[in-house]
Amino acid sequence: MRAPSPLLTYSEPAYGVTEVNFFLDKAKELATAEGLPQLALYLATSPLLRAIITVPAYGVQDNVIYDYVKSDVDAYLAKLRTCVHQYLRDCTDDQTPTQISGGAVPRTSPAAGRRE
């Protein structure tokens, strides 16, 4: 996300800082090898997208951000979703079928089964 700028005064839909921090904490909690499938589901169903408020962009009070611009959070969320889904696809694609014991692959000879 962009660094906060107290000079910006335009209004844009925003997410409350409490909702964003809760979302980030939950994503961090699930960001383990075992938790990635649950993280993908959480990203797809997060209630964050329903927690939009309208405030001046980058509301700053006592050097603390109290709300996040919607477009910044949405871009971050989209990138996070893409990364998690790509990683899960890569993990699935790297799995190979189990080979026959010893790694040998049976071959069929054209002469097999022929009687001379």
Rank of each mutant, 00 (worst) to 15 (best):
L77H: 09
L88Q: 08
P47N: 07
L49I: 03
S71D: 04
P56Q: 09
A44W: 08
S46Q: 06
Y76R: 00
Y76M: 01
V84H: 00
G59I: 03
K70I: 04
L77Q: 04
D67H: 12
D72F: 03
D72M: 03
H85A: 08
L48G: 00
V84N: 00
Q61G: 09
V55G: 09
T92H: 15
I100L: 08
A44N: 07
P97L: 09
L77I: 01
S101A: 14
V64K: 07
P56T: 13
R81M: 04
P47G: 09
I100C: 12
H85Q: 10
V64W: 10
V69Y: 01
I100H: 13
Y87R: 07
P56M: 04
P56H: 09
T45R: 03
I100V: 15
I65Q: 07
V84I: 04
Q95P: 03
N63Q: 07
S101K: 12
R81D: 00
L77A: 03
A78Y: 10
D67E: 06
D94T: 06
Q86H: 10
V73G: 00
I100P: 15
T45W: 09
Q86A: 02
T54K: 13
T96Q: 15
I52G: 00
V64A: 07
L80T: 01
P47M: 06
C91P: 08
D74E: 03
A78P: 09
K79L: 02
T45E: 11
Y66R: 02
V84S: 00
P56K: 05
G59F: 14
L77M: 06
Q86T: 04
L77F: 07
A44M: 04
Y87A: 02
L48N: 02
K79I: 12
A44T: 13
V55H: 12
T96F: 12
Q86Y: 13
